[in-house]
Nucleic acid binder design. Structure first.
Length: 684
RNA sequence: GCUGCUGUAGCUCAGUGGUAGAGCGCGUCCUUGGUAAGGACGAGGUCGUGGGUUCAACCCCCACCAGCAGCUCCA
C-alpha cells in the first residue's frame, strides 16, 4: 500500500505508507523542509511528524508565512511557558489550560496555573529568561496517543489533578477512546496539538501580563493565575505588535478624556457616573443634534420621560425580576418606610416583600421602553397611525459589577439614543430595514466603515427567554431576511438574544482593528403582550402591535468613548470641541485678532482666542496638543491684508488666506462632516 | 463580584520610620516674539479614608473606598 500525496500546486507524489509531511517537504526542497513548521493534511492542521495512512491525502506544508502556522507557534509558546514555570516554581505547579489566541488585540496565548504562591508582573522577566533557555535547548516535542486510563495514570504520577479532571470529562462528555499528550523534555501535557517540531522554533515572544482567571471560566471555581504572552516568527513582527499595543494605550479614551478635558469620573459623585465637561459636552451635543435631525426626517417623534418609575411598571415589563442584581436598589417612599419600620419589618423582609409585589417603590429606570409604552398607550391607536416611532435620548441606570466599570465604555449611568417603534407585523421587516439603514448611515458618517453584524438568537433549551416560540421564529426570520437583503456580512449567535426577543448588533472595528459592539436593533413581541398593547386594524378589531427597540449609537457615552480612541482625540471638524484657534503673533495685532475671533464665532464656528503673552511657537504647540483642527495665525502682515495665516492639524501650514475664505471653507467642511476644502485633505 | 497590582500638588510621577519634592499646568511681573516650549518670581499637598503598631507613620499592619489588568456578567 502506498500513500498518494496531492500538493496545493496540483501535482501528486507517491510515498510508502507511514511517510510524514516532514519527509514530503524534504522531498520537495531542502528550503521548504527548513521553513516547514506544520502541515495541513486534508484540511486539518497537524504535526510535521505524523505518519500518513494509506490512500490519498491533500497535503500542504505550512511555513511561517501561513496564518495557521502562527497558531501552532503560539500554542507551542504556551507550552514553553508552562515548562519554564515548572522549572522555576517546582513540580507543585498545576498546569491547566493554555491555548493560542488569534483574535485578541493584545495577547497571543496564555496558560492558566494553580501556583503554590502567587506571582506578579515583576516575575515575568524571570519567567521569560527561563523560556529563552527552553527555546535555546531546542527541546523536541513528541506526540503520544494513549488510552484515557493510561493518561490518567501518567498525570497522577505527575500530580496534575486538573489534567485528570479534563481527561475524565473528555471520556464522559465526548466518549473519547484515546487522548493525545505532548512530551517536551521533562514536560508532558494533555493536548490536542499540533505543535512545532521543537521549542527552538519559537523565535520571538514576550510575556505581557499576569492576572486571575477562574478555572473553567466559572466564578464558582478556584481563581487561577493566568500568564498572557504573545509570539511571532520574527522579532520585527513582535516589535510591530508591541508598537500597536503602545499606540492603543496612547489612544485610551480615559487618558485622552483627561488630557483634552472631555469628561470626568469623580469619586465624589460615584463610580461609573461620568460628568461631561464643557468640551466633551460639545462633542456630544453635535453628535446628538445631528442624529435628532436624522430622526425627525425619518418620522420619529421625540418624547421626554422621567428617570424613575414605579417598581410595578418594571415588574410588568419583566426588567425588575430579570435583572434585579444589576439594578440600583429601589427607592421607597418615606411614609411607607416609616410604617414598615414601625411594624418591625427588617431590610431583608422589605426586599422580599418588594419582590413579591406587596410593597411598591420606584426604580431608577434601567430601560426606557416601559415609559415609551405608556406614551403609546396614552392614545387609542389606529392602524393608520402606525408605525409610531417614539425617540428619546434617555438616561438609564444599571448597577454594573464594580470590576466591569471602564471609563465611558462601561458605566452605571448612561444614555441610550433610544427609540421604540410600534408597528403591525406586516410593517416589521420594513422598519427593521430602515433601522439598519440608519445605523449604516451613522457608522459611515463617522468613518467607521469596517463592521459586521451579529444576529443574536434565542436558545430553545434555555429558560432565560420568554414569549411565544412562533413569535420568536417569525422575528428571527424577519431579521435574517433584512440582513441578507442588505448584503451585510453576519454571524449568528444562539443564546445571545435579549430575554424578550432576538436582535441585530453591529460589531464595529476601529482604526486599530479592535472590535466594539455598538448599535443594536431588537424585535419584541413580548412587551406588547405584557402591557396589552393594541391598535384598531382595518377590520375594526383590536390587534397587537410589534415593537422594535433600536439604538444606532447604542449609547452616546460608550460611542464617544470609542470615537475618542478611533480618532485618537483628533475629532473631525464638525465634532471638534474647539474648531479654530485664533493666535495673534503679538499684542500689537490683538484687536484685529479679536475681530477675527468674533467673526468666526458669529459664523457659528467654535473659535478660541489665545491672547496670552506666549510667543507664537508656544501658542501653536498648545493648540496642537489640544488637537484643534485649525489655527488662524495673525501678525501685522495679515492685519494689513485682512487675512489670516491658516495652519491645519492634518496638512500643516496652508499660508495666508482672506478671512472670508477661511470662514467659508470651515463652514463647508463642518456641513459636509468630513472633506476639507481648505487643505484638500480629509478632515479627520 | 473574584484574583493581583496601585492610590503623594490640577496633571504625570520621584521619595524617606523623624509631618515632603520634580516636570508640566496655574498666578503675577518682565518680554512683543512669525508656525511645536522666552525669562523671573510665586501660590498650591491633613501623602485615598478609618483604625492599629510605634516616643514618632506618607512610609509597617488591618479594614474600607476608588482606580488599573484579567476573569465572570451585560436588558
Amino acid at each position: 500500500m502506498s500513500v498518494n500525496i496531492l500538493l496545493p500546486d496540483g501535482s501528486s507524489k507517491s510515498y510508502p505508507q507511514g511517510v510524514s509531511p516532514q519527509m514530503v517537504a524534504e522531498d520537495i526542497s531542502p528550503r521548504l523542509a527548513k521553513a516547514a513548521v506544520a502541515a495541513e493534511v486534508d484540511g486539518q492542521v497537524c504535526d510535521l511528524s505524523i505518519a500518513l495512512g494509506a490512500g490519498e491525502h491533500r497535503v500542504r506544508i505550512l511555513t511561517d508565512r501561513d496564518e495557521p502556522a502562527l497558531e501552532v507557534l503560539r500554542h507551542t509558546a504556551a507550552h514553553v511557558l508552562a515548562q519554564a514555570m515548572i522549572r522555576l516554581y517546582g513540580p507543585g505547579v498545576q498546569y491547566t489550560i493554555g491555548p493560542a489566541l488569534m483574535d485578541d488585540f493584545q495577547y497571543g496565548f496564555y496558560y492558566d496555573f494553580d501556583l503554590p504562591e502567587p506571582i506578579g508582573q515583576e516575575d515575568l522577566e524571570k519567567v521569560e529568561a527561563e523560556m529563552r533557555r527552553v527555546i535555546q535547548e531546542q527541546v523536541p516535542t513528541r506526540r503520544r496517543e494513549m488510552s484515557p486510563g493510561e493518561a490518567i495514570a501518567l498525570m497522577e504520577k505527575l500530580g496534575q489533578r486538573y489534567k485528570i479532571e479534563l481527561i475524565e470529562d473528555l471520556v464522559r462528555d465526548e466518549k473519547v477512546q484515546q487522548v493525545s499528550l505532548y512530551e517536551q523534555g521533562d514536560f508532558t501535557d494533555l493536548c490536542r496539538g499540533p505543535h512545532l517540531p521543537h521549542t527552538g522554533m519559537v523565535k520571538a515572544f514576550k510575556l505581557l501580563a499576569v492576572a486571575g482567571a477562574y478555572w473553567r471560566g466559572s466564578e464558582k471555581n478556584k481563581m487561577l493565575t493566568r500568564v498572557y504572552g504573545v509570539a511571532f516568527f520574527d522579532e520585527k513582527r513582535l516589535a510591530e505588535h508591541l508598537t500597536r499595543i503602545e499606540e492603543a494605550r496612547k489612544r485610551d479614551h480615559r487618558v485622552l478624556g483627561k488630557q483634552l478635558g472631555l469628561f470626568l469620573i469623580s469619586d465624589a459623585v460615584g463610580p461609573g457616573l461620568p460628568l461631561w465637561l464643557p468640551k466633551g459636552t460639545r462633542i456630544r451635543m453635535e453628535l446628538e443634534g445631528w442624529l435628532r435631525g436624522e430622526l425627525l426626517k425619518r418620522g420619529y417623534q421625540p418624547v421626554i420621560t422621567p428617570h424613575i418609575g414605579r417598581l410595578d411598571l418594571y415588574r410588568t415589563s419583566g426588567h425588575y425580576p430579570y435583572y434585579q442584581e444589576s439594578q440600583f436598589p429601589p427607592l421607597v417612599e418615606r411614609e411607607t418606610l416609616e410604617k414598615l419600620a414601625g411594624e418591625g419589618c427588617s431590610c431583608v423582609e422589605l426586599q422580599q416583600r418588594m419582590e413579591r409585589g406587596e410593597v411598591d417603590g420606584y426604580l431608577l429606570k434601567p430601560m426606557n421602553c416601559p415609559h415609551h409604552i405608556q406614551v403609546y398607550k396614552a392614545a387609542q391607536r389606529s392602524y393608520r397611525d402606525l408605525p409610531v416611532r417614539l425617540s428619546e435620548f434617555g438616561t438609564v441606570y444599571r448597577y454594573e459589577q464594580s470590576g466591569e466599570l471602564n471609563g465611558l465604555t462601561r458605566v452605571r449611568g448612561f444614555t441610550q439614543d433610544d427609540a421604540h417603534i410600534f408597528c403591525t407585523p406586516e410593517q416589521l421587516e420594513g422598519e427593521i430595514q430602515s433601522c439598519v439603514e440608519l445605523t449604516k448611515l451613522v457608522l459611515a458618517t463617522l468613518g467607521l466603515s469596517d463592521y459586521r453584524v451579529r444576529i443574536s438568537l434565542g436558545d430553545r433549551s434555555s429558560d432565560k427567554y420568554v414569549g411565544d416560540p412562533e413569535h420568536w421564529a417569525l422575528a428571527e426570520e424577519n431579521i435574517r431576511s433584512v440582513v441578507k437583503k442588505l448584503g451585510l456580512s453576519y454571524v449568528e449567535a444562539a443564546g445571545e438574544a435579549a430575554f424578550y426577543g432576538p436582535k441585530i448588533d453591529f460589531m464595529v472595528k476601529d482604526c486599530l482593528g479592535r472590535e466594539w459592539q455598538l448599535g443594536t436593533i431588537q424585535v419584541d413581541y413580548n412587551l406588547p403582550e405584557r402591557f396589552a398593547l393594541e391598535y384598531i386594524a382595518a377590520d375594526n378589531a383590536p390587534h397587537r402591535p410589534v415593537m422594535v427597540h433600536r439604538a444606532p449609537l447604542g449609547s452616546p457615552e460608550r460611542f464617544i468613548g470609542i470615537l475618542i480612541e478611533h480618532f485618537g482625540g483628533a475629532f473631525p471638524l464638525w465634532l471638534a470641541p474647539v474648531q479654530v484657534a485664533v493666535l495673534p503673533v503679538s499684542e500689537k495685532v490683538a484687536d484685529y485678532a479679536a475681530s477675527v475671533h468674533r467673526r468666526l464665532s458669529e459664523a457659528g464656528l467654535r473659535s478660541e482666542f489665545d491672547d496670552s503673552s506666549e510667543k507664537i511657537g508656544a501658542k501653536i504647540r498648545r493648540s496642537t496638543l489640544d488637537k484643534v483642527p485649525y489655527m488662524a495665525v495673525i501678525g501685522p502682515r495679515e492685519q494689513e491684508a485682512g487675512a489670516v495665516s491658516v495652519r491645519s492639524r492634518s496638512a500643516g501650514e496652508l499660508g495666508a488666506k482672506p478671512l472670508d475664505d477661511l470662514v467659508a471653507g470651515l463652514r463647508l467642511e463642518v456641513d459636509s462632516k468630513g472633506a476639507s476644502p481648505l487643505s484638500g485633505a480629509p478632515g479627520a
